[in-house]
Each structure stands twice: as C-alpha cells, then as structure tokens.
Design a protein around this nucleic acid. Structure first.
Lengths: 221, 221
DNA sequence: TAGATTGTTAATCGATTAACAATC
DNA sequence: TAGATTGTTAATCGATTAACAATC
C-alpha cells in the first residue's frame, strides 16, 4: 500500500496540485504518455525535479517509456486525497463566499459545500441554492453533521473569533480567505488564500523591475 | 539610496508581505519596538531568519535595542513598492471581480482599480461604482490610459486569450485569479492566486493526517 | 538488440540555523 | 558600564541538479 511515511516536504506538497492540473489537461487533450523532460518543459521545472518529486511517493513511470498520463494523474489524485469526499461548510456569503458557492467544479473533486453561514442567511438563500443558516446555528450544525473543512470567507475583524468557534465545535481544517493569520492550535490544519499577499508580491516585483531598469539606464550613461 | 541589487530570492520576497502585515498590526496596537526574537515568535519564524531576511535589503535595526516598528514598517512598505500608486484594470465582473472591486482596502495601498471590463458592462455598472466597459473597449482603454496591473477574474476558458490581448496591448503585470497557468512572454510579471491549489493542498494535508493516524493505530495493535 | 527514459545516488547550490563580534 | 540585540560570518540542513546504472 501507498505510504506517506517518507515525510514529504511542504515544498513538494505545494507542487502537487500543479502536477494534477497539468495531467488533467494532458488527459483532456488525449495525450497518453509523457516523459519527465516534456512535462518539465511544460511546467517550467526540471526533469530531475519531477522525477525526484514523484519518487517521494512511489515509482509511477516506466523506464525507457515515460509516464502514462492517466495512470499518473490517478496516482496524484489519490495522493492529494481527492478520491475521498469532503464535507465543507462555508462561513460568509459575501462576494467571495458566493463565488465559491457558485463555482461548481470543486464538486467534481469531492469537495462539497453543504451549508453556508452568514449574519444574513435570508439574503444568502436568495442568491445560492445551498442551505443557508445564521451564525447562531454554527455549533449545532457542526455537532450534528459531518464537517471536514470550514471555508472562512468573512472580514478580517470577525475571522479569529469565528475560527475559534469552529475549532471549538470540532472542525480540524480551515481554508481561510480572511486577510489575517489565524492563531489556532497546532493540530488544526489551516491554509490561507492571501489575496493581499499576492498583490504585494506583484507590486514588489514591479518596483524591483523599475529599479533594475533604472540602474541599467544609469550604467549606459 | 536603497538598492535591490543583491538579487533577493523569491523565498524572501514571498515573506515580505507577511512582515508588512504584522508590522502594521503592531503599529495599530501601539507597539513601538520589537526584537527579531519577539517578531519571530509572533510570525512562526526564527530570529536568525528575520535578521537575514531584513539584512538582504539593509540594516534597519539598532543593536542592543531591536527594530522600531514604525520605521521598519515604512522601510518594508517602500521595499514592497507600496509608496507608489498602481493603476489597475479589472477584467471580469463576476463574484470574484465584485469582491475585489468592493474591497476598498487596496486603495490605501495605492492599488487603484480604475476600470472594469466585462461581457456585460451594464450589469457590472449596476453593482459597483467603478467605470465598466465591454470587452471590445480593452485595447482602446489600455492605449489611452495608464495601466500598471491587470487583474484577471474571468473563467478558465477565456483566460489565456484575454491575457494575450492585454499583454499585446502593452500591460506588463497580471494578477491572475483564473484556475490556469498562463503562457506569456518572460518579461511579463504574472502572479497567480490559485484557490484550487489551496483546496488541493488542504485535502492533501487531511489525507496525510488520516494516513498517519491510521499508521499510529496499527502500531498500537 | 539499441534507444530511451526512468529511479536513484552523488554533487551542487541555496536557505536556514547557529554563533559571536560589533555596538547601541 | 553592563546587558541586550543587532549585523554578519560560518556551519548545517534541505532542495535542486547532474550523472548514470537499471531496465523497459
């Protein structure tokens, strides 16, 4: 049986979703086999890196041939835990929350948004067809339903408090869209989608670019 | 003058926004000084790492004292390019687009969303107070207005094509929310906000966690 | 069999941690 | 001055790249 025991580094884990996306894409385009070299050039990695990454989970290729796209895709799907299903609740029915609720593609991956909690559940109910509840109902819902993941799409000010509530209610994994670093017990799995950080990284790169061009210009004088 | 010449690694760059967020927070809380040790414990880094990171840009601390929060915050703001302003266009007025358009906090950082482009500009105009245009108007707008950043918040299917158009029109930086890796010239700065990748990373960690617990259980038998 | 490409070991490179002299 | 904490150099650790034997 497949083992996670080698204690795969977060660096590799963060690359796995990208492998999965590219392999799905290749499958859609009818590509049957791919070599580490080809995949590397596609993804902007090196062939060595790809072989090292994949081999931290097992040997999925065939020497002299390459990797069967379908087989490798299925293996990575399994590794990513996407052969299971995940019961999710979404907290916050604002624009981000609605975007997530309406974007049906996650359902295909077994990621099911079963309920939305919001301060104004009536309004949210008007806009999506997922069951909507008031914030009061949170603890009760978690106590009586399977909840694998809580998606937090609420303002910064409310985020820590609500996160504390869902964790206390028993939720073990959070996908956080609020622009704040949540302070939670070690055993809770948190992943942040930080739009702000991404904006700042972009402005940094723009500033750096401008600076380098400026330096270049001065050299040529 | 401040120099970017040391060719700072992307690893450090990706941490900068976090420094900035924590320092702003400390400032709001009226904290005047902080040591690398304190900041490290707050951010989940090591003191060494923080000193190394900061020193790749310059010496901002005082030996025997620590760092002045305000001063360091301003320095990082400068490094992140947030002392300038950025003229942005937003393509896609769906839920994600609306969320970005309505989230006013970026304006404080000098990130200005000046126009929204959408296949249905009338509908978008009804929902936000930013100027809305049809997709036809894209090239014209870019030709006649300053555009530092293009925010792409459109479906996967349209993303590559629209990205090609904005780049051809002269835009040099893209913040991409579409779940696809854009294939663009090297000199274009692209940053992806991949919600899907973040979901998959979370399911991976959940699957790994379940696996490790399972192994633990078997050991105890 | 010959050619291709993996899986894997060894070498290199980069990032983190440790240590300490400089100095506020 | 003594204590604290930086800036910076050296040591360690981890990730990437290179190389090649194994093998399809």
């Amino acid at each position: 049986m497949q083992s996670y025991a080698k204690n795969v580094s977060m660096t590799v884990v963060r690359r796995l979703p990208k492998y999965y996306q590219y392999l799905k894409d290749l499958e859609d385009r009818g590509v049957e086999k791919i070599s580490s070299k080809e995949l590397a050039s596609l993804m902007g990695l090196t062939a060595s890196q790809i072989r090292q990454d994949l081999n931290s989970f097992g040997a999925y290729g065939q020497q002299g041939y390459g990797y069967r796209v379908l087989e490798l895709k299925e293996a990575i799907k399994q590794i990513l835990g996407l052969s299971a299903t995940y019961d999710c609740i979404l907290i916050g029915g604002g624009n981000i929350g609605q975007a997530l609720a309406k974007y049906n593609h996650y359902r295909k991956d077994g990621i099911l948004i079963n309920a939305i909690f919001d301060v104004d559940p009536e309004e949210v109910a008007r806009k999506t067809d997922i069951a909507a509840y008031g914030m009061d109902g949170l603890e009760d819902y978690v106590a009586n339903n399977s909840v694998d993941i809580c998606i937090l799409a609420i303002p910064r000010e409310a985020a820590q408090n609500v996160a504390d509530r869902v964790v206390k209610a028993g939720v073990r994994a959070i996908l956080n869209f609020a622009p704040i670093d949540l302070d939670l017990p070690e055993n809770v799995i948190v992943n942040n989608v930080s739009i702000t950080d991404n904006f700042y990284t972009l402005t940094y790169l723009l500033a750096e670019d401008a600076m380098l061009k400026e330096q270049q210009k001065q050299k040529n004088t």
